[in-house]
Computed example of a mutant assay.
Amino acid sequence: MKRFLPYLSFALLYALLAGILLVGYESRAADDKPAYKQPTNPEPQVSLVPLAPGGGEPIAQTSAEGRKLQEDPAAIEKGKALYSAMNCVGCHANGGGGMGPALMDNIWIYGGSIENIAASIREGRPNGMPSFRGFLPDEQVWEVAAFVRSLSVPVPGTASDTKQAK
């Protein structure tokens, strides 16, 4: 028995050290896990805050004007011409997206109502959407917003409605 005593004490010391290392490793692995839980809803959260690039207060929105224009085929056609003239096509293509997000689906980062679209056009948005405040009068902002809205919700009697019917 005395012959095995040094080996036994060495085995106990080895087991004690292995236990300490294992406890340290487990606590380190717990620290590496994220402290938050991923949301179960994959839909992005919409932040509807009034943005004002370059300072100044955002211009108040008139929802009655926008709602009136979103149903007007003539205003939508004017908005389509402005969409091209202001080079919206450069980022959003013809609504299918490109460098900018697609406008023909129902996924709207900043909200898909006519008011939210007009605010995005007028005030701009982070990560690339420029502000057209000062470049387009309010009436034209609403016309572009009406056209953009018609890309995902066609209005009867407009070019986007007949294009989708084919």
Score class of each variant (00 low, 15 high):
I20C: 01
I20Q: 10
L21Q: 04
L22W: 06
V23D: 07
V23I: 12
G24Y: 03
G24V: 02
G24S: 01
Y25P: 05
R28I: 08
A30E: 14
D31E: 13
D32V: 13
K33R: 02
K33D: 03
P34L: 02
P34Y: 05
A35S: 11
A35P: 03
A35I: 04
Y36R: 04
P39W: 05
T40A: 03
N41Y: 00
P42A: 01
E43Y: 06
P44T: 09
L48K: 10
L48P: 07
V49N: 14
L51M: 03
L51D: 03
A52Q: 05
G56D: 10
G56I: 13
E57A: 00
E57P: 01
E57D: 06
E57N: 09
P58E: 02
I59G: 09
A60I: 11
Q61D: 12
Q61K: 13
E65H: 07
E65L: 15
E65Y: 08
E65F: 12
E65C: 00
E65I: 14
G66E: 08
G66Y: 06
G66R: 14
R67F: 04
R67I: 12
K68G: 06
D72R: 06
D72L: 04
P73N: 04
P73D: 06
A74I: 14
A75G: 09
I76F: 06
I76M: 12
E77I: 02
K80V: 08
K80Q: 15
A81E: 13
Y83N: 05
S84R: 02
S84N: 11
S84P: 00
V89G: 04
V89A: 07
G90S: 05
C91D: 11
H92P: 03
A93F: 08
N94M: 15
N94Q: 10
G96P: 05
G96E: 15
G98W: 07
G100K: 00
P101Q: 02
P101T: 01
P101S: 03
P101M: 09
L103Q: 12
L103M: 15
L103D: 07
M104T: 15
I107E: 00
I107A: 01
I109V: 09
G111R: 01
G112A: 07
S113N: 00
S113D: 04
I114Y: 05
E115W: 01
A119C: 06
I121M: 11
E123K: 02
G124V: 00
R125T: 13
R125V: 14
P126L: 14
G128Y: 12
P130T: 09
R133T: 09
G134F: 05
G134E: 15
L136D: 00
D138K: 07
D138R: 03
D138S: 03
Q140W: 12
A145F: 01
F147S: 12
V148C: 11
V148N: 13
L151T: 15
S152D: 09
S152I: 07
P154S: 10
V155E: 14
V155R: 08
V155F: 03
G157S: 11
A159Y: 06
A159R: 10
S160V: 15
S160L: 07
